[in-house]
Design a protein around this nucleic acid. Structure first.
Lengths: 232, 232
DNA sequence: CCAGCCAGTAATTTATAAATTTTATACTTT
DNA sequence: AAAGTATAAAATTTATAAATTACTGGCTGG
């Protein structure tokens, strides 16, 4: 008997609205659509080749997620960036992911530790740049990097909290992209990840949380220091 | 000299989409639109007297906030409730607001303490029920109650976190409404608020956070205990 | 009994129209 | 004559109505 009310079959056949939502979000996060830019319907319609309604629905979704701000009767704009917000987001992420990591470690299982080890290994063997000499951001690295951090907090036991962390990650991602476009990331970020992993496997919560927060704060500091230069 | 580029004038003339968004959200939170209900466009259009486009935009916004779930090509539904989610939301709220309260108290100022005192006073003098005998939820009480809790964490210094707390409050509000409709709230909730206030004014963070978390946990426990009866 | 087809229904999208804001122009006032 | 205000035109956002597309459930035939 097939009594699936909440049909959980993979919803592959996405609507246009969902498709354009994902594309817009990606373009905003990578700053291809730069902060503050006006999102005129006509421009977006021909740029993305969609009608008004799915476009509008996508913009409305992005509005509640704070990637887009909608001025009533006056159209939509890409959310601005600011030093203030960078600091606020970083601070919040340190708090919340600190919390989530502590909880995760309290619920630690063998399989989780193994998954974390694997995630770190993938991160470690994925090159940061597509080219050896000049820096060219590697999307694969971004993917495994995010997966590593998601695994760290994944066992905290709160889906709402994980959703919030993901949103914070997205919002901060944009600042990273802005910075990356201008300055090659000089910091040895690989070592930081290793140290976090070691602290987690050693069951040293205090240390792990501290290192994770330091990791986020350092990233923010780099961006913050040449923030004014990024706006040109 | 008036050099307002980002004209901050009060955006009063709301669009239809924003209006219907607020109305739908209110009706979902009060369970006038009960959990799991299908939100057919035709029904909503005549119920709220609006066209498809603003309706659809409102539903899309509510989707990212998790008050509505959208099944691709299969319409929208009011988000379901579950014991699991109730627990998860409560746990998360305790964590996050505990954090926020601690930070708030660290940033405490005279004016904040005074505002808190006033908020509590208002809460104290607003009757819980509209009628003395039979219980009838007082919307004014809900308003000042929420204001009190918002003030508690208001000085934490993170707008993203405050936004998240507000969302958690909204999502839990719906569970409270379900419960209230069936059982008169027997608990003496007034005393709990007083004790929290006292702990805050006494600069006793540990105690304040503990009491706040206990407050939320107790509310959840009451709802949880007769949850199965609420679904009928 | 199951697969595939054919209404009927509902969701999604396009196309059209209405309302609002912005820009441009003309006019008054100092 | 310059500055500011009022009026008119253009552009853009918002909303309605129509058309398209996809799903639902029953039915037929294998």
């Amino acid at each position: 008997m097939n009594s699936d009310l909440q049909t959980p079959r993979a919803d592959q056949p996405a609507t246009l609205a969902t498709t354009i939502y994902a594309r817009l979000k990606a373009d905003i996060l990578t700053t291809r659509l730069e902060p503050g830019r006006k999102l005129q319907s006509r421009f977006l319609m021909e740029q993305y080749n969609v009608g008004q309604t799915p476009l509008r629905e996508a913009l409305n979704r992005l509005t509640t997620e704070e990637f887009v701000v909608g001025m009533e009767q006056r159209g939509f704009y890409v959310k601005e960036v600011s030093k203030d917000e960078l600091q606020e987001l970083t601070k919040t992420r340190c708090w919340v992911e600190g919390l989530a990591l502590r909880e995760s470690m309290q619920n630690a299982t063998q399989t989780w530790e193994e998954a974390l080890l694997v995630a770190h290994h993938r991160l470690d063997r994925t090159p940061r740049s597509l080219k050896p000499d000049t820096f060219e951001n590697n999307p694969d690295w971004e993917k495994v990097h995010r997966a590593f951090h998601a695994t760290l907090i994944g066992l905290c036991g709160s889906r709402p909290l994980l959703g919030f962390c993901e949103q914070l990650a997205d919002r901060l991602y944009r600042y990273r992209m802005m910075s990356i476009a201008k300055a090659y990331p000089a910091r040895k970020v690989g070592a930081e990840h290793s140290h976090i992993l070691q602290a987690v496997l050693a069951k040293n919560s205090e240390q792990a949380v501290h290192l994770l927060q330091q990791h986020y704060q350092r990233t923010a500091d780099v961006i913050y220091s040449d923030f004014d230069g990024l706006l040109s």
